[in-house]
Design a binder for these strands. Sequence first.
DNA 1: TTAAAATATGCTAATATTCGAATATAAATA
DNA 2: TATTTATATTCGAATATTAGCATATTTTAA
Lengths: 113, 113
Amino acid sequence: MRPIGKQAELLKVIGHPVRIRILAELTKGVKCVSDFEEFLEISQPNISQHLTLLRNHGLIDYYMDGRLRCYYLLDPIVPDLLEVLSRDYEESLPAPACCPVTKKGKYPGKRRH
Amino acid sequence: MRPIGKQAELLKVIGHPVRIRILAELTKGVKCVSDFEEFLEISQPNISQHLTLLRNHGLIDYYMDGRLRCYYLLDPIVPDLLEVLSRDYEESLPAPACCPVTKKGKYPGKRRH
DNA sequence: TTAAAATATGCTAATATTCGAATATAAATA
DNA sequence: TATTTATATTCGAATATTAGCATATTTTAA
């Protein structure tokens, strides 16, 4: 299991609207930078920065095709995370059974819940 | 499906080592603040800040038990995300088939890959 | 050789995150 | 009522993230 620090880092890197959209596109197939320009409403340098960040963290990579940089997904966790992220959960988790024992275990006086 | 912006926000909130550890504990059961103090090496106010952040984003909630605040998981996506996050992936995704067609569709000159 | 296309880099200002320190609150007990 | 216990809030400094802008790089085409 990857260390907690790496897990947090991973979520932080993915946790940006533009990067989520980029990754979602890449789960469908290879895309070059100018393809992203067509559906992201941000500047090309900004797209490039996000791609570089994703690549620096090992989530994606690219190969050259003529003058195009064809980006593709590298880390297999990405589609799985995006899948969970896009699920619809109908309801919250059930409230826990009343007064479960915490480590402290002290339950002073009246209990109001 | 929750909007991309919300997805990003969610990942950003979870994407902190302390908050991941807090959430991982809460997937096992209810915990009060002083329980967290026992295994997190950070100050109580800092723990409280992280708990408040998680609560403000609807990931957790608490009920009072005497003077203890018993925190519990509220958002059902959390255990699923943590499960994916803790998976071991053996290898990277396969490199894409050579020269897939991008939207640009221009494949000038030599191809080196 | 010059120009164009595709993409990256460097810098900067604005904004957000993080943690520590001090302090506050609220309920229960002495 | 004063104290203790459990937990939260406020503030500030350090640091990180983000986007825009201008510019650079690389490769191909004219």
